[in-house]
Amino acid sequence: MIRVDKVTKEYRTDHTAVRALRGVSLEIRAGEFMAIAGPSGSGKTTLLNLIGCLDVPSTGEIYIAGEAVSGKSRIELATLRRQKLGFVFQTFNLIPVLSAYENVSFALSLLGVDGRELRERTLRALKEVGLAGLEKRKPGELSGGQQQRVAIARALVKEPQILLADEPTANLDSDTGREILDLMAALNQTHGTTFVFSTHDPMVMELAHRLVMLHDGAIR
């Protein structure tokens, strides 16, 4: 499903160069529920961003569903993200002026889905994450856990092959974090979607089917 081949990533500032990843190689199979863990600054978010085609490696190659990512144009990368990838962010990143329903349907409308299908799929996704009846609420009217559920519904509604979650429990209390993780695990089972997390939360590491530890930009 995903192959990361000798990937390095270097960030340059005016005077210094920071090597965030040092030749990482990794394979993620379809349907995996996997966590990339490590201390702060270990490069886990960088790796997740590269897998999610949000950034490009300095060297090495990433293959998604057998397709090399490097050399793709901005438009091609946007299409890849739109069609195959779903994202859940640490800070939810919902659009505050839109309701839960609109935030979720937004992801579908990017794919050109509209009308009855858009409505049905959106409501189904919200129901799956336990937000039936809260469709009209705006993010400001929802709790942190509920907002993260909207974000998960937004990621899952388009039925992506891979769902990438950057520290999805970091902004939640432990009980809510646990609920979110259980939800994602259940969705992984139901839909067969590949889940890849970056985390330093022991609870996530415990629940993950596979754990990849990063330290100073390399897999240990």
Binding site: G52, L54, R74, I75, A78, T79, L80, R81, R82, Q83, L85, F87, F89, T91, N93, I95, F106, A107, L110, R154
Partner: peptide, 14 residues
């Protein structure tokens, strides 16, 4: 800006 980042991450075209 962060919202723009999210939209781009979700595959919305520039």
């Amino acid at each position: 800006v962060r919202e723009i980042g999210m939209m781009r991450a979700l595959g919305m075209r520039d």
